[in-house]
Protein backbone atom coordinates (compact mmCIF):
# COMPACT_ATOMS: atom_id res chain seq x y z
CA UNK A 1 0.00 0.00 0.00
CA UNK A 2 1.49 3.33 -1.02
CA UNK A 3 2.14 6.08 1.45
CA UNK A 4 -0.44 8.26 -0.31
CA UNK A 5 -3.07 5.52 -0.06
CA UNK A 6 -2.37 5.18 3.64
CA UNK A 7 -2.65 8.96 4.07
CA UNK A 8 -5.98 8.92 2.23
CA UNK A 9 -7.25 6.07 4.41
CA UNK A 10 -6.17 7.97 7.51
CA UNK A 11 -8.00 11.11 6.40
CA UNK A 12 -11.12 9.18 5.40
CA UNK A 13 -11.17 7.43 8.77
CA UNK A 14 -10.90 10.71 10.68
CA UNK A 15 -13.63 12.33 8.58
CA UNK A 16 -15.90 9.31 9.06
CA UNK A 17 -15.43 9.36 12.82
CA UNK A 18 -16.26 13.05 12.98
CA UNK A 19 -19.34 12.51 10.77
CA UNK A 20 -20.56 9.58 12.88
CA UNK A 21 -20.18 11.54 16.10
CA UNK A 22 -21.84 14.64 14.69
CA UNK A 23 -24.79 12.79 13.19
CA UNK A 24 -25.37 10.97 16.46
CA UNK A 25 -25.38 14.21 18.43
CA UNK A 26 -27.59 16.01 15.91
CA UNK A 27 -29.97 13.07 15.55
CA UNK A 28 -30.62 12.68 19.24
CA UNK A 29 -33.76 14.41 20.49
CA UNK A 30 -33.76 15.75 24.02
CA UNK A 31 -35.36 13.14 26.30
CA UNK A 32 -37.77 15.64 27.84
CA UNK A 33 -39.50 18.80 26.67
CA UNK A 34 -41.97 20.91 28.63
CA UNK A 35 -42.95 20.78 32.28
CA UNK A 36 -43.59 17.10 32.93
CA UNK A 37 -43.89 17.59 36.69
CA UNK A 38 -46.70 20.12 36.34
CA UNK A 39 -48.76 17.68 34.28
CA UNK A 40 -48.07 14.84 36.69
CA UNK A 41 -49.16 17.06 39.58
CA UNK A 42 -52.39 17.99 37.81
CA UNK A 43 -53.20 14.27 37.67
CA UNK A 44 -51.99 13.51 41.16
CA UNK A 45 -55.36 13.40 42.89
CA UNK A 46 -55.67 9.85 44.11
CA UNK A 47 -57.77 7.87 41.65
CA UNK A 48 -57.26 4.54 43.26
CA UNK A 49 -57.51 3.78 46.95
CA UNK A 50 -54.31 3.06 48.77
CA UNK A 51 -54.68 0.90 51.81
CA UNK A 52 -51.97 2.68 53.76
CA UNK A 53 -53.19 6.23 53.16
CA UNK A 54 -54.36 7.76 56.42
CA UNK A 55 -57.63 9.66 56.38
CA UNK A 56 -56.52 13.16 57.42
CA UNK A 57 -59.99 14.30 58.45
CA UNK A 58 -62.23 11.36 59.30
CA UNK A 59 -65.84 12.09 58.57
CA UNK A 60 -67.85 10.86 61.52
CA UNK A 61 -71.59 11.08 61.34
CA UNK A 62 -72.86 10.87 64.90
CA UNK A 63 -76.37 9.68 65.67
CA UNK A 64 -78.61 12.70 65.16
CA UNK A 65 -79.72 14.96 67.94
CA UNK A 66 -83.39 15.57 68.50
CA UNK A 67 -83.16 19.18 67.35
CA UNK A 68 -81.76 18.04 64.03
CA UNK A 69 -85.27 17.04 63.05
CA UNK A 70 -83.83 14.01 61.29
CA UNK A 71 -80.64 12.23 60.51
CA UNK A 72 -78.17 12.89 57.76
CA UNK A 73 -77.98 9.31 56.55
CA UNK A 74 -78.54 9.30 52.78
CA UNK A 75 -81.23 6.94 51.51
CA UNK A 76 -81.15 5.45 48.04
CA UNK A 77 -83.28 3.03 46.10
CA UNK A 78 -81.88 -0.42 45.51
CA UNK A 79 -83.37 -0.56 42.03
CA UNK A 80 -81.24 -2.08 39.28
CA UNK A 81 -79.14 0.65 37.66
CA UNK A 82 -80.25 1.56 34.16
CA UNK A 83 -78.20 0.25 31.29
CA UNK A 84 -76.24 2.99 29.50
CA UNK A 85 -78.61 4.69 27.08
CA UNK A 86 -77.54 4.74 23.44
CA UNK A 87 -74.04 4.44 22.12
CA UNK A 88 -71.40 6.26 24.14
CA UNK A 89 -69.42 8.99 22.40
CA UNK A 90 -65.90 7.62 21.98
CA UNK A 91 -62.74 8.76 20.18
CA UNK A 92 -62.44 7.35 16.65
CA UNK A 93 -59.59 9.32 15.05
CA UNK A 94 -56.31 11.05 15.92
CA UNK A 95 -54.43 13.72 13.98
CA UNK A 96 -50.92 14.87 14.83
CA UNK A 97 -50.13 17.45 12.19
CA UNK A 98 -46.48 17.86 13.09
CA UNK A 99 -45.86 14.15 12.46
CA UNK A 100 -48.26 13.74 9.54
CA UNK A 101 -50.25 11.25 11.61
CA UNK A 102 -53.94 10.72 10.74
CA UNK A 103 -54.94 7.40 12.29
CA UNK A 104 -58.03 5.49 13.35
CA UNK A 105 -58.60 5.08 17.10
CA UNK A 106 -60.03 1.83 18.47
CA UNK A 107 -61.24 1.15 22.05
CA UNK A 108 -59.23 -1.42 23.97
CA UNK A 109 -58.97 -2.69 27.51
CA UNK A 110 -56.57 -4.98 29.26
CA UNK A 111 -54.62 -7.96 27.94
CA UNK A 112 -55.97 -10.60 30.32
CA UNK A 113 -52.80 -12.66 30.04
CA UNK A 114 -50.30 -9.90 30.85
CA UNK A 115 -52.39 -7.38 32.78
CA UNK A 116 -51.01 -4.67 30.50
CA UNK A 117 -52.98 -2.28 28.33
CA UNK A 118 -54.17 -4.02 25.18
CA UNK A 119 -52.78 -2.50 21.96
CA UNK A 120 -53.94 -3.74 18.52
CA UNK A 121 -51.43 -6.07 16.87
CA UNK A 122 -50.87 -3.74 13.93
CA UNK A 123 -48.83 -0.62 13.25
CA UNK A 124 -51.80 1.40 11.92
CA UNK A 125 -54.33 1.74 14.76
CA UNK A 126 -54.19 3.89 17.87
CA UNK A 127 -55.64 2.26 21.00
CA UNK A 128 -57.86 4.18 23.43
CA UNK A 129 -57.99 2.75 26.97
CA UNK A 130 -61.75 2.55 27.30
CA UNK A 131 -61.76 2.02 31.09
CA UNK A 132 -59.97 5.34 31.61
CA UNK A 133 -61.02 8.87 30.71
CA UNK A 134 -62.53 10.15 27.47
CA UNK A 135 -60.18 12.70 25.80
CA UNK A 136 -61.06 16.15 27.14
CA UNK A 137 -62.82 14.82 30.24
CA UNK A 138 -61.36 14.81 33.74
CA UNK A 139 -58.35 12.60 34.25
CA UNK A 140 -55.87 11.14 31.82
CA UNK A 141 -57.21 9.83 28.50
CA UNK A 142 -54.70 7.31 27.19
CA UNK A 143 -54.04 6.80 23.47
CA UNK A 144 -51.29 4.27 22.77
CA UNK A 145 -49.84 2.93 19.53
CA UNK A 146 -46.85 0.97 18.33
CA UNK A 147 -43.54 2.61 17.57
CA UNK A 148 -42.82 -0.47 15.44
CA UNK A 149 -43.53 -4.16 15.07
CA UNK A 150 -40.90 -6.69 14.04
CA UNK A 151 -43.35 -8.15 11.53
CA UNK A 152 -44.68 -4.87 10.11
CA UNK A 153 -41.98 -2.18 10.46
CA UNK A 154 -42.42 1.36 11.77
CA UNK A 155 -45.71 2.22 13.46
CA UNK A 156 -48.05 5.19 13.59
CA UNK A 157 -46.24 6.57 16.67
CA UNK A 158 -42.74 5.97 15.22
CA UNK A 159 -41.85 9.65 15.51
CA UNK A 160 -43.67 10.38 18.78
CA UNK A 161 -40.23 10.87 20.33
CA UNK A 162 -39.81 14.04 18.22
CA UNK A 163 -43.11 15.71 19.21
CA UNK A 164 -42.50 19.19 20.55
CA UNK A 165 -44.16 21.49 23.05
CA UNK A 166 -46.95 23.42 21.32
CA UNK A 167 -47.70 20.78 18.68
CA UNK A 168 -51.43 20.43 18.03
CA UNK A 169 -53.31 17.16 18.49
CA UNK A 170 -56.85 16.63 17.23
CA UNK A 171 -59.15 13.87 18.45
CA UNK A 172 -62.23 13.05 16.40
CA UNK A 173 -65.24 11.48 18.13
CA UNK A 174 -67.91 9.03 17.03
CA UNK A 175 -70.48 11.83 16.89
CA UNK A 176 -68.36 13.83 14.44
CA UNK A 177 -67.07 16.41 16.88
CA UNK A 178 -63.37 17.22 17.21
CA UNK A 179 -61.48 18.23 20.33
CA UNK A 180 -58.17 20.06 19.96
CA UNK A 181 -55.22 19.68 22.33
CA UNK A 182 -51.85 21.37 22.75
CA UNK A 183 -48.74 19.37 23.64
CA UNK A 184 -47.43 20.55 27.00
CA UNK A 185 -44.66 18.04 27.60
CA UNK A 186 -42.91 14.96 26.33
CA UNK A 187 -40.68 12.62 28.27
CA UNK A 188 -39.37 9.07 28.47
CA UNK A 189 -39.89 6.79 31.46
CA UNK A 190 -38.06 3.54 32.09
CA UNK A 191 -40.83 0.95 31.86
CA UNK A 192 -40.29 -0.19 35.45
CA UNK A 193 -40.63 3.44 36.57
CA UNK A 194 -43.71 4.32 34.53
CA UNK A 195 -46.08 6.28 36.84
CA UNK A 196 -49.06 4.06 36.04
CA UNK A 197 -51.46 5.60 38.57
CA UNK A 198 -50.74 9.04 37.10
CA UNK A 199 -50.90 7.99 33.46
CA UNK A 200 -54.16 6.12 34.02
CA UNK A 201 -55.58 8.63 36.54
CA UNK A 202 -59.37 8.94 36.35
CA UNK A 203 -59.47 12.21 38.25
CA UNK A 204 -57.53 15.45 37.98
CA UNK A 205 -57.30 18.04 35.20
CA UNK A 206 -58.11 16.80 31.68
CA UNK A 207 -54.95 15.49 30.02
CA UNK A 208 -54.56 13.64 26.74
CA UNK A 209 -51.73 11.14 27.16
CA UNK A 210 -50.06 9.64 24.07
CA UNK A 211 -47.84 6.64 24.67
CA UNK A 212 -45.46 4.49 22.65
CA UNK A 213 -42.22 2.63 23.23
CA UNK A 214 -38.66 3.89 22.96
CA UNK A 215 -35.30 4.07 24.62
CA UNK A 216 -32.98 1.09 24.56
CA UNK A 217 -33.98 -2.10 22.79
CA UNK A 218 -33.29 -5.66 23.85
CA UNK A 219 -32.92 -8.00 20.88
CA UNK A 220 -33.26 -11.01 23.15
CA UNK A 221 -36.62 -9.99 24.62
CA UNK A 222 -37.78 -8.06 21.55
CA UNK A 223 -38.85 -5.08 23.60
CA UNK A 224 -37.88 -1.52 24.45
CA UNK A 225 -36.85 -0.49 27.95
CA UNK A 226 -38.80 2.79 28.03
CA UNK A 227 -42.12 4.41 27.20
CA UNK A 228 -42.26 7.71 25.34
CA UNK A 229 -45.12 9.74 26.85
CA UNK A 230 -46.61 12.94 25.42
CA UNK A 231 -48.96 15.03 27.56
CA UNK A 232 -51.41 17.43 25.89
CA UNK A 233 -54.15 19.64 27.35
CA UNK A 234 -57.44 20.77 25.78
CA UNK A 235 -57.79 24.00 23.82
CA UNK A 236 -61.60 24.20 24.07
CA UNK A 237 -61.81 27.35 21.96
CA UNK A 238 -60.57 25.42 18.97
CA UNK A 239 -62.91 22.44 19.24
CA UNK A 240 -65.00 21.74 16.16
CA UNK A 241 -68.70 20.99 16.55
CA UNK A 242 -70.39 20.78 19.91
CA UNK A 243 -67.98 19.06 22.23
CA UNK A 244 -69.29 15.75 23.22
Amino acid sequence: MSRNTLKALFVISVVTLITVTASYLIGTEPATVGDVGAIEDSLSEPSFPTASAPDPQPTVVPPPDAEDGGPSVPVSTGLLPDLPAGDPVIPVGLKLGSLGVDAPVVPTGVNQRTGQMAVPNNVRDVAWYQFGSVPGERGSAVLAAHVDLASQGPGVFFNLRTVDEGDVVEVEFSNGTVRVFRVEARTAYQKDELPLDTIFAREGSPVLTLITCGGGFSESSGSYDSNIVVYAVPIPDRDLGSAG
Binding site: G115, M117, A144, L149, P154, F158, L194, L196, F200, T212
Partner: peptide, 27 residues
Protein backbone atom coordinates in the same frame (compact mmCIF):
# COMPACT_ATOMS: atom_id res chain seq x y z
CA UNK B 1 -83.38 -7.72 43.97
CA UNK B 2 -81.70 -4.70 45.53
CA UNK B 3 -78.36 -3.51 44.19
CA UNK B 4 -75.51 -1.82 46.05
CA UNK B 5 -72.44 -0.50 44.25
CA UNK B 6 -69.04 0.46 45.62
CA UNK B 7 -66.94 2.47 43.15
CA UNK B 8 -63.30 3.46 43.02
CA UNK B 9 -61.76 0.02 43.58
CA UNK B 10 -60.03 -0.13 40.18
CA UNK B 11 -56.37 -0.32 39.31
CA UNK B 12 -54.19 0.82 36.41
CA UNK B 13 -52.95 -1.67 33.82
CA UNK B 14 -49.44 -2.98 34.40
CA UNK B 15 -47.80 -1.34 31.41
CA UNK B 16 -48.05 -0.27 27.78
CA UNK B 17 -46.26 -2.63 25.36
CA UNK B 18 -45.89 -0.80 22.05
CA UNK B 19 -42.81 -1.94 20.13
CA UNK B 20 -41.04 -5.12 19.11
CA UNK B 21 -38.63 -4.18 16.30
CA UNK B 22 -36.06 -1.85 17.82
CA UNK B 23 -36.20 0.54 14.83
CA UNK B 24 -36.58 3.61 17.06
CA UNK B 25 -33.99 2.83 19.69
CA UNK B 26 -32.13 5.79 21.14
CA UNK B 27 -29.05 3.72 21.66
Amino acid sequence: VAVQTITGLGAAPGGVPTGTAGLATDG
